[in-house]
Design a protein around this nucleic acid. Structure first.
Lengths: 200, 200
DNA sequence: GTCTATAGATTGATAGAC
DNA sequence: GTCTATCAATCTATAGAC
């Protein structure tokens, strides 16, 4: 139809209504949850009208899918990549740094509830299997990156790098959850340091 | 008021309506989530009337608190205690056994979504801080029990038993989450074996 | 792309009798 | 302790105009 026109670029521009909606939803779905956050809240926070919301998204679940993509991008750009891709830094320190950054994100004052992807997958996997697979894929890629790092040096632990990387992802996700339960980001830092000691 | 009478014993009896409601809710809150499960579903599953439900529970959140208690009892009785309290078994094997039992619980065919306490705390912590503290307390006790086990022998790892126990709980919770995300209970088994290797 | 107004459905909780 | 009937609120989504 000729009524819908695409913007010239989806790249760098001032935030569109759609982007504002996704940003507001990302924060609320993380702190309060998907089901517990009415569309109304996101509308009020952004000043976008209800009907405009449904112009951009077919339904609330489509918004959730966009939120998942946003969290993957954010988490990867701000936490994972800066620590793992640090050239010239020993593997153990890179790992500890990853946990340090994750801990910073986890401040309770900001209402953080562990890993945002973990929270979303729990609420969305049942009604939208594609979301589960998407998040599984991201965790896989994270594991692979860590494995590649560990594989570069002599492994004095015996088990192969893949297994250790698998364990590292477990520790990260578990520590993020426990830091929420105990309201203490130090949990993530301590887990990261100990893990780095064990594998490096 | 003289209209409410307490049962003679709350211990061993055939399941009361209240117990049936909690059992049905525990399963559904775990597989579908708290917010996504209407009271109606629990009523239909148990055959209990709506009004009888509100005779037993002030509201849905009170039901959730009862569900949390039930999961703590179940998990502790069926998974944690049998493995950790096994006399004459080496510490490493007790830990691996704990993960083995947790993995069995995690069969995807049953719709398992990781640790039931983790799922509940995410949805309930924001509106009911007491639930978060209760679950934090249970994780603390689990950590203490593991620490006591580890403390019994020479620790060749350097860090004290408390830290290692803290890490073990992280690994357990993280592995349970990832087993849901990847739909593979083997995740929990592998994490348990590797952890046992590292600390024992 | 955006707005106002409203439909349509679900759901948590209560009233009052037995 | 349990039942039927119903209220009142909340929430997702759509209709139709500009």
């Amino acid at each position: 139809m000729s009524t819908t026109r695409k913007p010239v670029s989806t790249g760098e521009r001032t935030a569109t209504n759609r982007e504002r909606l996704v940003a507001a939803a990302a924060e609320r779905f993380h702190t309060r949850g998907f089901e517990a956050t009415p569309v109304e809240d996101i509308l009020a926070a952004t000043g976008v009208s209800r009907s405009n919301f449904y112009y951009h998204f077919a339904d609330k679940r489509e918004l959730a899918r966009a939120v998942v993509e946003r969290w993957i991008e954010t988490y990867d750009r701000d936490i994972v990549t800066p620590s793992l891709a640090a050239e010239g830094v020993p593997v153990g320190r890179r790992l500890a740094d990853l946990f340090q950054r994750a801990a910073q994100f986890q401040e309770p004052a900001a209402g953080r509830t562990g890993c945002p992807l973990a929270r979303l997958v729990l609420e969305l996997a049942h009604q939208d299997p594609a979301v589960r697979r998407r998040i599984a894929g991201y965790f896989d890629s994270l594991q692979s990156r860590i494995a590649a790092l560990l594989g570069r040096r002599d492994n004095r632990l015996g088990p192969d790098a893949g297994r250790v990387a698998e364990l590292a992802v477990c520790v990260l996700e578990g520590a993020l959850l426990l830091s929420h339960v105990h309201q203490d980001p130090g949990h993530v830092r301590r887990a990261g340091k100990l893990l780095a000691t064990l594998v490096a």
